[in-house]
């Protein structure tokens, strides 16, 4: 006896990925960035979907809405430095994309990082936890956003281009509190 799924009675209206990377929007974004044609099944139909070429800029902008597709928001240069130094990203198998910043002291996160992220209309989760790796108490600012996740990866791969593209004022904000300036300057003082 054939199952209902096999004969297509209950195929559903949702979009099914043909790639292990799920975006919930039909086409894996890393493939879409390459401007390739991706076959997508919707229900029982099979069609190809032409996505726009890469418009997610490597510089200091990030897309903020999947649905609108065009809306871009400027990333604060302070956040570029902070995320490049201390940021981590994680994509779960269930399709959750997150970018987070961990600090031992929460003051910097609460006073600088969280307000800047919230100003960009990101839903920021700010909490403390005990680290399993070193047993220390840490604070974390976590954002679930696929757009920020993708931008974060591009930014880390092209950090030299990002730095070169900053103005002098933006470059000062980029260096401010970024993890690249650490104890060396203290020793040299």
């Amino acid at each position: 006896m054939r199952s209902l799924r096999r004969i297509g009675w209950n195929s559903g209206e949702g979009t099914r990925q043909i790639s292990p990377v799920t975006s919930g929007k039909g086409v894996p974004e890393p493939l879409a960035l390459l401007g390739v044609q991706v076959a997508v099944t919707r229900g029982r139909r099979l069609f190809t979907k032409q996505r726009e070429p890469c418009w997610l800029m490597v510089g200091s902008t990030v897309r903020t809405s999947h649905s609108s597709g065009k809306q871009q928001k400027r990333i604060d240069p302070y956040l570029i430095g902070m995320l490049y130094g201390d940021g981590t990203s994680y994509a779960s198998k269930r399709g959750a994309y997150s970018v987070s910043v961990d600090q031992v002291r929460g003051q910097l996160l609460s006073s600088e990082v969280v307000p800047r992220l919230r100003k960009m209309n990101f839903n920021v989760h700010f909490y403390d936890y005990m680290s399993k790796t070193d047993g220390s108490h840490k604070w974390r600012a976590l954002v679930f956003s696929k757009d920020l996740f993708l931008w974060f990866g591009e930014m880390r791969r092209n950090i030299v281009d990002v730095v070169d593209g900053l103005t002098n004022n933006d470059f000062k904000k980029f260096l401010q509190d970024s993890s690249m300036q650490k104890a060396r300057i203290q020793i040299d003082l």
């Binding site: 910097l108 006073s111 000062k172 509190d177 104890a183 040299d188």
Partner: peptide, 16 residues
Amino acid sequence: VEKFRRLIPSYRLKAR
């Protein structure tokens, strides 16, 4: 260094 601290007011430097 003084110019750096003046131009780029950093929480990390102040903390250290």
